[in-house]
Every structure is written in structure tokens, then in C-alpha cells.
């Protein structure tokens, strides 16, 4: 029963929702709207599950004193402060907004900003023209980077002024994005879409059961 009921529900709702896509009948569309509403109700439970999993993971780390377990205490401290202030006072309360604007926003921005430093360092060390493919990637990346910023065209127009093409950096970048990039992206989109369709059929028919847990 533990497995049959979820499998039957998955099959039923999968088939019904596919059929609603092919029928404009008011009854069919009514079912579609109703299921969407159910989904909206079910979704917040995912948030509860996420919080429960987070607490469980960090409790385990603290109990087992794994490496850097002290940071898990910081997680609980942050969570407790935001929950204890946020839930009774609401997200528009001045204290909650102060914590958000002065802690979360700068910390988030700082984490992301650090990427610029690491990318610069990693590009210097790893971006080497060792093979033909790496050289091709390197040249393309440099052209796109040059075309992404106005200074690229300035350099092109002054250094490569003998070429019969003005603003060449941005024009070549645009060609790379419009033609080779578009073609390869479309291939990826088609491949992923076919994969999603086949995986969905497997789930609806109960062939793929890993979402139930247990590994089969």
C-alpha cells in the first residue's frame, strides 16, 4: 500500500493532466484549474519539508562534531532570530527590514562579488590553449568578452582600423551568439525536452520510482 497508492495517484494525475491539455471542454479546463489550485496549496509544505531537512542536517553535524560544526550553530542562530522576529512582526516590520537590508543583502552580494576575484585568478591559471578545442574556446570567449563591453569596439576601431568593419567586436560577438550559439542551444533544448518527455512517461507509468525513495 505504501508504494501502490503514490504510484496510482501519480498515474491518475499524470494521465488526467495530459488529457486536459488536449481538451478545451469546460469540464476538462475546470479539472485543470482545480488541480493547479491544489498544487498551490501543496507547495508551502515543500518549504516546511525544506526547513525540517535543514534542521535535521545541521543537528546531525553538531551531534557528530563534524568539521566546521560550529557554523551549524550560526545557521540555527540566524534562523531563530529571523523566525522569532519575522513571524510575529511580519516581513515589513522595521526590525525585520533592518536585518534583511543590513545583513542578508550585503552578505549575499559579498558572496557573489567574490566570484569576480576567483574567476580572474582561475582564468589566468586554467584558460590555456593546450589543444585545438581549447584554443577555439579561448578565442571565442575572448571575442565575446570584448564584444560584451564598449571598450571592445574602441580597441577594435583603433587597433584593427584597417579592417573593412567598424565596431567589429560587438558585431562578431553578435554573430557568435546568433548563429553557432543558437544552433548548439537549440540542440541542447531539443535533447533535454525529449529526455523530459521520456522521463515523465516513465514516472507516470511507474517504471521510474526513485522519487518514492528506497533506491529502486
Amino acid at each position: 500500500m505504501k508504494r501502490q497508492v503514490p504510484l496510482a495517484l501519480c498515474f491518475l494525475f499524470g494521465i488526467v493532466m495530459i488529457l486536459t491539455q488536449f481538451s478545451p471542454h469546460s469540464y476538462s479546463q475546470g479539472v485543470y484549474r482545480e488541480v493547479i489550485n491544489w498544487n498551490l496549496i501543496i507547495n508551502p509544505f515543500a518549504l516546511i519539508l525544506a526547513v525540517a531537512t535543514l534542521i535535521q542536517t545541521h543537528m546531525t553535524r553538531i551531534q557528530r562534531r563534524t568539521e566546521h560544526w560550529q557554523y551549524s550553530l550560526v545557521v540555527f542562530l540566524g534562523m531563530a532570530v529571523m523566525v522569532l522576529i519575522g513571524i510575529p512582526l511580519g516581513p515589513q516590520n522595521s526590525y525585520v527590514e533592518w536585518l534583511y537590508n543590513n545583513l542578508q543583502v550585503p552578505m549575499d552580494a559579498t558572496m557573489f562579488s567574490l566570484l569576480a576575484f576567483f574567476i580572474a585568478s582561475a582564468a589566468y591559471r586554467a584558460f590555456r590553449a593546450r589543444t585545438f578545442e581549447a584554443t577555439l574556446l579561448l578565442i571565442t570567449a575572448l571575442i565575446v568578452m570584448m564584444g560584451n563591453v564598449p571598450v571592445g569596439d574602441l580597441i577594435w576601431n583603433s587597433v584593427l582600423s584597417w579592417l573593412p568593419m567598424e565596431d567589429g567586436a560587438s558585431k562578431v560577438r553578435q554573430w557568435i551568439l546568433d548563429i553557432p550559439n543558437l544552433a548548439s542551444r537549440r540542440g541542447i533544448i531539443l535533447g533535454v525536452s525529449l529526455g523530459v518527455i521520456s522521463q515523465s512517461i516513465r514516472i507516470i507509468l511507474g517504471i521510474e520510482r526513485s522519487y518514492l525513495g528506497g533506491g529502486d
Binding site: A116, A120, Y124, F127, R128, M145, M146, V151, G152
Partner: peptide, 17 residues
């Protein structure tokens, strides 16, 4: 600002190569 960072990274990649 991004223009100059791009130039720096391009310069570093060229130097590294």
C-alpha cells in the same frame, strides 16, 4: 566598471598563454 575588469581578464589570459 565591467569594461575594465573584462580588459584585465583578457590581459591576464593573454599573459598566461
Amino acid at each position: 566598471t565591467a569594461s575594465f575588469v573584462h580588459l584585465l581578464i583578457i590581459g591576464l589570459v593573454a599573459l598566461g598563454n
